[in-house]
Amino acid sequence: MAHSSNRAVAAPSHGDGHGHEGHHDLEGMRMMGFWIFLITDCILFGSLFATYVVLSGNTAGGPTGAELFEMLGVIAETFILLTSSFTSGLAVLCMNKGDRKGLIVWLAITVLLGASFITLEITEFVNLVHEGAAISTSASWSAFFTLVGTHGLHVSVGLVWMIAIMIQLGRHGINSVTRRKVGIISLYWHFLDVVWIFVFTIVYMMGVM
């Protein structure tokens, strides 16, 4: 990490990003960029869903989802992820009240819920592979593992990110930068929740029905 600011004075204070011009609200701009990123992520998931819908019938004589899905586990996953979305909302409420401790605690609970979601999902994947449904079994399972796995990967990235933000909150407290970061991660978390609802409906519900 090299910062070559050879000809200038350092910024007077950390975190107050807004420039003197007055009309460039840096943190607001970053939030907007993240919204646009979410649009691109929507298209990414949209393409994966389309792929899944096209290929889900192509089981090449192998097992089908209806035969192998364990709905109980999936419903538990759904419940856990929805709850974590709620707790991340509570974290934001704490932040708005300026309650740093509450914020970190609620984020930690969100991380724990997210981690249990991932654990359940990995267990589910392992079971499926044991029962003869791996990514290379048929087009249908390729599409299943890729779609659900991409969501799981997003959640995992979110976990690491959330832990990093918690550490930063511990160091810097609530200021304009950390405020924006918490806002973004909670937006991201809600987004993953919405995507999961689609996964649950299109992959699991329509799969077993």
């Binding site: 393409s47 192509n58 087009a139």
Partner: peptide, 29 residues
């Protein structure tokens, strides 16, 4: 561009993990 990302990723998963998105066998399309 997200569509490109997905398309190439699927092709790579086919090649690397033996998936069947676009193969002739295994129900690929």
């Amino acid at each position: 561009f997200p569509i490109l990302t997905v398309t190439l990723a699927l092709l790579f998963i086919d090649r690397y993990l033996g998936a069947h998105f676009f193969t002739l066998d295994g129900g690929g399309n």
